[in-house]
Simulated scan of single mutants.
Amino acid sequence: MPAAAVHALVADDDPMLLALLEAFLQTRGYAVTACGDGLAALEQFERGGFNLLITDRNMPRMDGLALCRAVRARDAGRYVYCIMLTASDEEDTLVAAMEAGVDDFVLKPLRPAELGARLRAAERVLALEAGLAARNEELARAYAQLSRDLELARTLQLGQLPAPQSFDGLRFHGLFQTSSFVGGDVYDWFEPVPGWLAFHLADVSGHGVAAAMVAGNAMHLLRSAAEDVVRAAPEGQGPAALAAAIVAEANARFLRMNASDLYLTVAFGLVHIASRRGAVVRAGHPPPLLSAPGTAAFEPLGEGDVPLGMLPDIRWTAVEFALPPGARLALYSDGITECLDPAGEPFGEQRLRDLLAAHARSTPQQACQAVGEALRDWRGGTFDDDVTLAVLAAG
């Protein structure tokens, strides 16, 4: 550390020794403030700016041990290197001083060569501390910038999700809670062509920025695959064949564009709006839950299959269903069922089904809010995985 960067506070009740110390330190280029006792030194210290303290052991009003303890108890914003002047080299004296926060000792009577060596050691320590502080400031600035970028990314990701929407009496609402700034879950609902309603909930393996970027790409990929497949389909083709073809096309496109080792599970559904007949494909995803009119019970729908992005030329199976007025369909991520309480018990599928059944007559928005509140109460803290739910109510 350059000597000019050292601001020394010196405390000694011997005026002659105090003057000698002040002159010696100034010849080294230090800024020096001299005080005749510990209490006066502490008052000066509280004004700030010091990184070196040289104090006598025995002084009136406040001795050197009390002064060092007081300095260590205060946040100076930097490390303060403490040197104690003492006429005793007994073990008890040195141990007491070190426990008070002293870094080094100089025995009286003072020898300039020894004092100079001790000061050079202090400069090395202070230089290391200053370098560490500078790097910490750089890290703090970088972290602040990263936090701003991640907050913007979160805003952009939330902006990609569809707003609550109704398609000729088919009403959607979603719940989206990430485990960090951004998440690897995504949901969507849209009309690939007039008369057809497509929807999905996808969960990318992993968490954080990479998973969020893949999730955003997957969302647009599924949308474009649905639009292209439905437009090109022969007239009269049913929702099951179309849904399976859409997932297969999405998988082929995902394999072409995905440069990472991430994959995604998807629950994808397609409904013919006029007939309310639909089909759902489970690509490695938890089962959609279907509630028929007149009953509050939610039952799992479909068989599990291979996630997207793992293998080419996979043929997925679609399971058909109907959405007459009063029916409900819920898609969810495993972040809900695998959410652990403080004792380590998972929330579980049955608890989710019971909660949805209890809100079967509520709006989709109210059902999503109820699940979100129940999960926060269950977890009792931040989530370890992204929590996502989409509820479709047929009116």
Score class of each variant (00 low, 15 high):
G309A: 06
L20K: 01
A226N: 10
G236L: 09
G302I: 14
V80H: 08
R253E: 00
R118M: 09
M310D: 03
A140N: 04
H272N: 15
D104E: 13
A23F: 11
R118F: 00
A113G: 04
I246Q: 04
Y143G: 14
A330H: 02
I54T: 08
P162D: 06
D104M: 04
A127P: 06
G238I: 02
M310T: 11
V214L: 15
G278D: 09
A374E: 08
G174R: 05
D75A: 09
L308N: 02
L201H: 11
R57F: 10
E151S: 15
M213G: 12
P287H: 02
L355C: 06
A367K: 06
D63C: 09
P192T: 13
Q145G: 15
L290D: 01
R376H: 08
A11G: 11
P2E: 13
S275H: 02
L270I: 06
A297C: 01
R111W: 06
L308F: 01
A113Y: 04
E99R: 13
L128D: 06
R72S: 10
A330V: 05
V230C: 07
E373F: 04
D354S: 12
G36Q: 13
R171C: 12
A248K: 13
D185M: 10
A121K: 13
A3E: 13
A117H: 05
A96I: 02
A250R: 00
L311K: 00
R256A: 04
T265Y: 07
R315N: 14
P162H: 02
A212D: 03
F383I: 10
A343Q: 10
A358K: 01
A243N: 08
A318S: 04
A144K: 14
S147C: 04
T155I: 13
W189F: 14
G284V: 05
P192K: 08
M16P: 09
C339Q: 10
E303Y: 05
P192I: 11
R277I: 08
P112A: 14
E373I: 03
T178C: 12
F199P: 09
L356K: 03
G236M: 09
L39D: 15
N251P: 09
L340N: 07
G49K: 05
L264P: 03
E338K: 00
A163R: 14
G183S: 12
Y263G: 07
D185W: 02
L340P: 09
G294F: 00
A225Q: 03
R120I: 09
L126K: 00
A218E: 04
A4L: 13
L94V: 11
A245D: 09
R111E: 14
